[in-house]
Nucleic acid binder design. Sequence first.
DNA 1: ACAAAAGTGTTAAGAATACACCCATGT
DNA 2: ACATGGGTGTATTCTTAACACTTTTGT
Lengths: 225, 225
Amino acid sequence: MTKHNILTPGVFVNTVIFQLINEELSVLLTQREDEPYKERWALPGGPVPLDESTQIAASRIINNKTGIQIKQLGFLEQLYTFDSIKNDPGVPAVSVVYMGLGKSITPKATSHNRNAQFYPLDQIPTLAFDHNNMIEYAHQRLKSKLYYTNAIFALLPKMFTLSQLQTVYETVMEDKFDKRNFRKKILSFNLINATDEQHMEGAHRPARLYKFNKHELEYLTRSFE
Amino acid sequence: MTKHNILTPGVFVNTVIFQLINEELSVLLTQREDEPYKERWALPGGPVPLDESTQIAASRIINNKTGIQIKQLGFLEQLYTFDSIKNDPGVPAVSVVYMGLGKSITPKATSHNRNAQFYPLDQIPTLAFDHNNMIEYAHQRLKSKLYYTNAIFALLPKMFTLSQLQTVYETVMEDKFDKRNFRKKILSFNLINATDEQHMEGAHRPARLYKFNKHELEYLTRSFE
DNA sequence: ACAAAAGTGTTAAGAATACACCCATGT
DNA sequence: ACATGGGTGTATTCTTAACACTTTTGT
């Protein structure tokens, strides 16, 4: 006898993987192969088998459907659990959604999937289920995480210029900052160190390259902006 | 044909309801009636039926097991979804945990439950499943919510003194504040208004009573402390 | 020489911190 | 009159915000 004897919803995971592409915040989507919503774009996801935790299932499914390894992501954390919406086709379900951040990752076609690609946030089509909501929720969460953590490291390459860093903040937070104040503040957090390398590009003064001194999530000593 | 054909874990909800009792942060627990962990104290919870959302199930279960109405709580929000731990008895499951805040609420014995009571955080016994972890997680979340929201309103009575308010902050945040600075800051947030009533008690000067001007969750304009 | 992005400093206003005494009441 | 908790102000430091010009490079 198990501890319950009533039927409960199915358990699924979905993942919202963000990456910057051409200075645009983009989300990894896959095209569904099966009904319901066959052919529709959707967040990578699937059912959670009995012998996997939701996080393990999320990692495996990302890899199966997009060829992306979890190690390529700066982090992956649980975002929220969504109930299936009223008029959705399919069985009643909950979807445990994970959010991840990465950089320079490219989905590969796999045996389980025809199509996987990053879509810029403002070009996302109408997705299966309530996946559009999930993305919006994830974007909000990401914004707030940038206020009180160093999460941004996961979106940037190993070395970057201060201007690039500022642009990433501005893109994700959908805001603009003063260049001098931004530099003063970001340096005061001691998250990044100057290297003695420079980035030369275009007909202008070269920019000094910086790198993060931590590559794990940490809380900031005070909030950003 | 449904959209999946593999078995997934069972879906449960649990709730962490906080309340202050004698200036101690306390959590609502119920004593289990069934195996596994029969007789053990646990967070109120149960399986989610197919026709309920997790939030509705959480509300119903709190009411069934403790006699508390959801309307008595200042708020109830989803906290985190826990996978059942490896060596737990019972079927594989996920537990969607909700956190709620209340004041002056008293559990009533109901037909579904023998025992429900608030335990101060530092007197909580070893609970069923990993419910002790869930409480710790909820306490952390509550602390951070006090930094950036007005959530504290949900723990205080309609009218309160500034000293009471400070004590509540100190209790939940496990910290101490300077009285003058605390008052300056809390007033600068415009969350509370002075009333012209006073609280007289004990052999000392009576204290002015204040009330919150909002009773819904809001974000603070800057962070507290 | 010019265009383009990199880099840099000061001032003013607001917020946080540290800190000590008087006030109103009951006994 | 004394014990108890309520109530109040100032000075210092730190943080934020506003703001404009010089530097280095490629063409």
